[in-house]
Design a protein around this nucleic acid. Structure first.
Lengths: 252, 252
DNA sequence: CCCCCTAAAGGTCAACTTGACTTTAACTCA
DNA sequence: TGAGTTAAAGTCAAGTTGACCTTTAGGGGG
């Protein structure tokens, strides 16, 4: 694990930050909100939005503040969840940094992104964010991959997919979320059967949405359930790392 | 969130620790390893084992070091996984502390607990740890509850239950793990059908274990699978908070 | 040695779920 | 009015689940 000057074996304080993987769905692709760094290190590189926690602030509070600053969203129409903490001693050249990564799922925003913060924020397709060179700043590529896998897994066992949909939404809107996040087509009929039978997932509003083509679709809002019973499992192939919980390797 | 002297809105460094919820199964009950604090704050109270990360140490490395110091286990016969990070500004009266909680599942130890560390470590039934007064130090009761729920949930979707069993083990040993962690009896026949059919969960050794009563049981070792397909779901009632992923409340 | 006790292991069956597919419904546009 | 399109509902064989029963393979006692 290296033995550079700072890397003593003594206890030391560390800077603590929160970083956010904020996902949304735009034109058939999963996008993540990235900022362009305006200073060293990694100047000009893309990074997940985030920042230091403040003296009197809880971790969740710092994450919510960052989400609001970057998107203008105040958590009411979004899902915000702690994901995982990253603290390798050399992950930031400025010193010992520990970052608590959060996962946010938001509907495609009607308001332009970038609130009070001067940094330029962009929606970037996740595939592109992970493939472009140079890559993301710091260890943000690892964080983004973990966030993506966690999101895919969450859709199986929870009802968070609705966080991507502005209310009210149709069953097709919801299916579209699953298809985009998992990257596989789903049978419309079987999907409908499952989500409408799962207790507390959807609540019919009674309304219908007419489009210029096809039969009008019934409208729903989010139901009270947070866990999805029975789960809606992806069948292999899907971005299948199969690893959701990454145990600590025996020789790290 | 308070506005005590230290609680300014400026960025500050924080002490970073790891805390471990180490679970095992002893005589039909889930136990957690607790230490008795030898100094202030919370002197004499029980707490989860843990400690500061060192200058050159990764988070996972610090967790594995603590696990080894407390139990003598070096990760080969155990499951160690990052769980969640806690960092409320007033969670430790000594200053700003952020702790990364890890979850460890270990077999009932043949060696006496407590390795190189002078602190007295005890296996305490989880029910007792959560019910006794005075309660645990710091916010460790919250951490322990979260760890318990995460463990129950992990048994549904992953193969980690085997981490509780010394190899080789029988299907009944494994069922016993599920029954103890979930607190419900399971049908032996149906349980066997599920775990033996799940691809990669169990590998027959060919051996058998004869006891002084009943037919000898076939012996197994852990298979390569880490996710359990199909999942083995508990049906309601079971310590059912239903909340595995605790989204950030809108008004925190 | 034989029978009983026990737990493991395997079998049965009705109810339910799943995936693949077909049919009907309800709208717009030409 | 008919074609096109999407929503919604239905069908059906194959598979899974939970409840329960039967058989197997040991030990121990008489």
């Amino acid at each position: 694990m290296g033995d550079e000057p700072e890397g003593s074996n003594e206890r030391r304080q560390a800077w603590v930050t929160v970083d956010l993987a904020i996902f949304t769905i735009r034109d058939d692709h999963l996008h993540v909100l990235l900022i362009e760094r305006g200073k060293e290190p990694y100047i000009g590189r893309r990074a997940l939005p985030g920042g230091h926690i403040r003296g009197s602030e809880a971790l969740d509070g710092a994450a919510r503040r960052e989400l609001r600053e970057e998107t203008g969203i105040d958590g009411l129409h979004s899902h915000l969840e702690q994901m995982r903490t990253y603290g390798d001693p050399d992950r930031d050249p400025r010193g010992r940094y520990v970052t608590v990564a959060y996962l946010a799922l938001v509907p495609d925003l009607p308001v332009p992104v970038a609130g009070t913060d001067a940094r330029r924020a962009h929606w970037v397709p996740v595939d592109k964010a992970l493939a472009d060179t140079p890559g993301l700043a710091f260890d943000h590529e690892v964080i983004l991959r973990d966030a993506l896998e966690q999101t895919r897994s969450r859709l199986e066992y929870t009802t968070v997919a609705t966080a991507f949909c502005p209310e009210p939404f149709t069953v097709s809107d919801l299916r579209h979320v699953y298809e985009v996040v998992w990257g596989v087509p789903l049978d419309p009929s079987n999907f409908r059967r499952k989500v409408t039978r799962a207790e507390g997932f959807l609540e019919a509003t009674g309304g219908r949405r007419v489009s210029d083509t096809g039969r009008p679709a019934a409208l729903y809002r989010r139901g009270p359930a947070r866990t999805l019973i029975p789960p809606l499992m992806r069948s292999a192939e899907v971005g299948a790392t199969g690893i959701e919980w990454s145990p600590v390797a025996a020789d790290a």
